[in-house]
Design a binder for these strands. Structure first.
Lengths: 192, 192, 192, 192
DNA sequence: GATGAATGAGCATTCATTCAT
DNA sequence: CATGAATGAATGCTCATTCAT
């Protein structure tokens, strides 16, 4: 019953570990096979090269992202509930699968222009869906007449901020921070 | 009158160009000297290695950042004015000196933990100053009782979002987007 | 039957050849791999760098030296027999494994002070043993009361002289030269 | 009256210092001009390259060597007196002008075969003269019938030994060592 | 399937040498 | 006379990739 990890899985894990520790470019295939404890030939049996292993990891992340969004964010939710769910889901996905998520941050900036677009494509539909939620809310009168993309932008931006502050300064975010942030997005900071 | 550019300046410019185009790791010293049109020895006359050239560029950015914040964000400003100034300044610095700014995004993620902290240090005091602005505004009653760090977080987050959307999807932000975003931060999206 | 030489052995041989021909510093890794007829990566698979290949050769020499001294110089021998054996062994080791021996002469002078001491350490016990032979001979009355270290010094010095004369002027030493030299050390040049 | 050192002299001194400290190959022209505190162009004003500076130093040594031998070793001397003078002169030249002398040891081994011969040529006549002294002493009956070259060989060998022991192990030789060594060469170690 | 020896293109770095000022 | 900026050939070293076992 106990499933021994296959060499392929060991390689994927080792790659993820190392990309997060040392960055993609600085990680060598020798590093990966050393940590996965297998031979060089084995790496090339399963992956064409380092990029192809990276792609697998990215796909894995995208799948997880989609699952979580589908599970947690529904158009039937109320405004505060939905906004909180969106921010929380983003943060949870990047946190629960933290290294996979951070990997995206670490890597995707340095890709070629075309590759940059391609890497965000699988996620775009879900962001569009969120935009549509707020667009609908405007129509229904629950939300003021602002560009709904900017709401999604603030949610994504807050995610960036919390994760990078955690990553760079070791300052994790608290539930209160999330609540605060949602509250600002909904009601603003100004005393009415 | 106009002073011909020195080799050192040519190298810095070439480095900046290439780091932005191909990323730091993928840029070779041969690339840099080819674009700066000078010999390999000349590179090593002025810089110890690629990292040292990068550091110079980062310092340059930090200096520009400080200048712009000092010039544009003052504690005497009103709430909307200040928030707009903060977001605008962030965006202008990263835009006007766009490539220098993007460079930070592209590179700093893959540094060692200690280097990550070090790279953000020169900017921290200015972020603290912003936080203090909002803390004061809470005391004075102009702002509701939320954690002022989260306001700064949303401003930074929005900056991230606008810039990365521009960089990745070639979708630039408009003055209306800025206005919208400030408005959301101040008054929230919810119709009162 | 005869085992084909491994790449590692080919590299060691090529290194020895070239160090002797052109000196250590003037020999490049490209030279070595060209002569060993293998790729650059192969060199670095087996050795960290040129110094590490050199160390291997030095160890090889030290091992040979120890073997020869153990085989040829015994405390039970008579004075002339022992002195002849010592000089002959020195010369044979440096001659039979001529290039390895000469390698020591060529290289070790330019090392850092600490490295100089370290490089002579593996040989020291054997020189001490020789000194002790003559010290014992003084006690037993066979040898006059001189500092036994100076006898060993003359044997080593004669070895230096014969080898360097051979190396520099292409003038090899003869059995008669050895006999002569031992005779001088034992009985002096002065007609009694 | 106080003669300020010329740039040329400063360069020669710096070269000598550095060749002794780090070896010829490891010393760069940048090292030399840094220690001589002058510009790169100045080096090339006075010397064609590093080899040419070395040659000057070697010539300087050879001149000193000739002066000392002429001053101290005369054919009219008695056997012990002459032998002592020869060994002492060798040692003094290499000691008094220690770094120049050691420089020869350090460097000359690694030269090309032809250069090796050339570098010893200026000294050969003086070694021949010593050989002739002992040859004459054989004819006159003061010395037994051995090959006189081997006597010179032992004197040179002893010099090598004393100097290298000093250089490598920091064990200097004493007047007693010289006396001992001359005594062995003249009368042998064996109790008659 | 799994391995790791062998490879060489590619990159960083050094340093002797030139030459305009 | 003196300088030092500029140069690029030479060299050390890395690492992705291949392939015979």
């Amino acid at each position: 019953m106990s499933k021994r990890k296959t060499k392929r899985e060991l390689l994927l894990e080792a790659g993820l570990d190392l990309f997060c520790e040392k960055g993609f470019e600085k990680t060598t295939i020798d590093d990966i096979i050393a940590r996965a404890d297998c031979g060089k030939g084995t790496f090339y049996r399963y992956f064409d090269n380092k990029d192809s292993l990276y792609s697998e990891l990215e796909n894995e992340f995208n799948t997880l992202f989609r699952q979580e969004v589908n599970k947690n964010c529904h158009s039937g939710m109320g405004l505060r509930q939905y906004t909180t769910a969106a921010l929380t889901t983003f943060l949870r996905v990047f946190r629960q699968y933290q290294r996979l998520g951070m990997l995206r941050f670490i890597r995707e900036q340095s890709l070629e222009p075309d590759a940059r677009k391609a890497s965000i494509n699988p996620i775009m539909p879900y962001l569009m869906e969120m935009r549509d939620y707020f667009a609908t809310a405007i129509t229904s009168g629950a939300v003021r007449n602002i560009n709904p993309e900017n709401v999604v932008g603030l949610i994504i931006g807050a995610t960036h901020f919390f994760l990078l502050r955690d990553f760079k300064l070791n300052l994790p975010y608290s539930p209160k921070d999330i609540e605060d942030t949602v509250d600002i997005i909904l009601n603003g900071v100004a005393r009415p």
